[in-house]
Design a protein around this nucleic acid. Structure first.
Lengths: 273, 273
DNA sequence: TCCCTCGTTCCATTTATCGGAACGCTGTTC
DNA sequence: GAACAGCGTTCCGATAAATGGAACGAGGGA
């Protein structure tokens, strides 16, 4: 879920610091460690160049070499990134909320923001007794139109049909990852309108077969534009859409306790179109 | 807890890819974002150089620039590091164990390995209802001699007095972070010996005032040399050393259920010296 | 003992980095 | 409303750092 870019690229010779960063990426994508020859081959660079790049990374604390000669991501980089994440506003503010929701429902919770038409996961809390492992990763992304988080945010950005059409035009066609993915601008528009009416958004196996979720936008900064959205994900069979909606009162209660009652959207009573 | 290196360094002009990596570090250390001028000043480099370095990072997906022009760590880097961490053996193997222990005791649990005389935290699980926030960060480190995790591992590395003396000589003096830190090789040797006898190790406010913990080494690979250690930390006042030791039977039970009964040390009955 | 693998080092060539200076935009001040 | 100040960005000749083919040496197997 949410990869990022291609593995081996033949765009340009890839030189200088760009090559060093490519090596860093390679190390991160190989958790069991990489040999020098692997790195060299993956980059299409001579051994000596790969070796020099690795040397720079090791010296900076961004890579390390174990007793077997295998290169790994450096502990210092992990400390930096984990420290960065824990110090960021989303973790600090919505972290406790996500944990309470995960404990209460026994399901995985997420917080995500909208970046260029995609949802980027900013925080993730698995329940104490995980029933399954969600494939989402912090920093990873998915198209907004086929995730609960994404649609919960889009519904306040794309308020009329023209907005929806422009979104679809700008961010590529609606790719049907599952049979349930919304395929047309009409379907998306209808879903967003219903979301605005209800004050929440459902995702019924639209991004991953077997996964449903309920999502709510959060208005942490501005009362008009949502800052991000939270979601609770579950597996079909164990949880029905009705169950998700049934959690709503309790969800709203917990959100209000943790962040106040101004951060939730006010459902439009019945602004029939 | 576990910083890593100095902030502003005047070692050498710092050029090329080393400078790019320094910029990356700077971004990670400033979670609220950095201006170009900040980066430039922090590196002692001209604006244009800092700008070029940031450009390289942005292009690689390791940095991003928000609408206000502030530079941040890139989402792609977060995805890479979090994905790397979740795919690594320690997370996969001891993760569920740490979670169960955290749930059972209501305290924070850690897994750490010994690297060059220091403990490096590899996994961390906070309880669902955190009573306090531990300052440890994944990838961060602390001297082994004043942490429960570290001593639990040292006790199988430094089995006689000569080993202890050599350790102290190699890894600097025993710095007393708190009044309870072990100050002499004798005290450390005695503590390690008692740990070997008991099959566990206590840390009684030796690294952080107000924090006590109990730690056990894990023998995941070899039956003779521990792979790493797990710990459960608590605040004094709410938890006494006796409470920690009282958890032991349950801890051993859970560890045996999750990983088998061969991964725990066999307490030496009474090998009096 | 030989051989193969793998990480490391060397060095002349070349190419990307360096950085001072100028540009243009935005929001502010007088 | 016009001059100003701060900021990110771009330009370009001089310079220094990256480049990579080849040789080296340690370690492990056959």
């Amino acid at each position: 879920m949410g990869t990022g870019r291609q593995e081996a690229e033949e765009t340009s010779p890839l030189t200088g610091s760009a090559r060093v960063l490519a090596v860093l990426r390679h190390l991160a994508e190989h958790p069991d460690g990489s040999r020098l020859a692997d790195v060299s081959a993956a980059l299409g660079a001579p051994k000596s160049s790969a070796h020099r790049a690795l040397g720079s990374l090791v010296q900076a604390g961004f890579a390390r070499q174990d007793a077997d000669g295998l290169y790994h991501l450096g502990f210092d980089l992990m400390r930096l990134v984990f420290g960065y994440h824990e110090a960021r506003a989303p973790s600090l503010i919505v972290g406790p909320l996500l944990r309470r929701l995960a404990d209460e429902t026994g399901e995985t919770t997420h917080y995500g923001v909208l970046v260029d038409g995609n949802i980027v996961y900013q925080a993730k809390v698995s329940p104490s007794r995980p029933t399954f492992q969600m494939s989402s990763v912090i920093g990873g992304s998915n198209p907004a139109y086929r995730t609960g988080l994404g649609k919960a945010l889009l519904m306040h950005e794309l308020t009329d049909r023209n907005d929806v059409d422009r979104y679809v035009a700008d961010h590529g066609p609606l790719e049907a990852r599952t049979p349930h993915t919304l395929r047309t601008p009409e379907a998306l528009h209808d879903a967003l309108r219903e979301g605005r009416r209800n004050g929440y958004m459902l995702d019924l196996q639209e991004n991953d077969l077997g996964i449903v979720c309920i999502a709510l936008p959060l208005f942490l900064d501005s009362p008009s534009r949502p800052t991000g959205a939270i979601s609770i994900s579950a597996v079909v069979g164990r949880t029905t859409p009705d169950d998700l909606v049934g959690w709503l009162p309790r969800i709203r209660e917990i959100v209000a306790e943790e962040l106040g009652d101004a951060v939730l959207p006010t459902p439009e009573p019945s602004t029939g179109e």
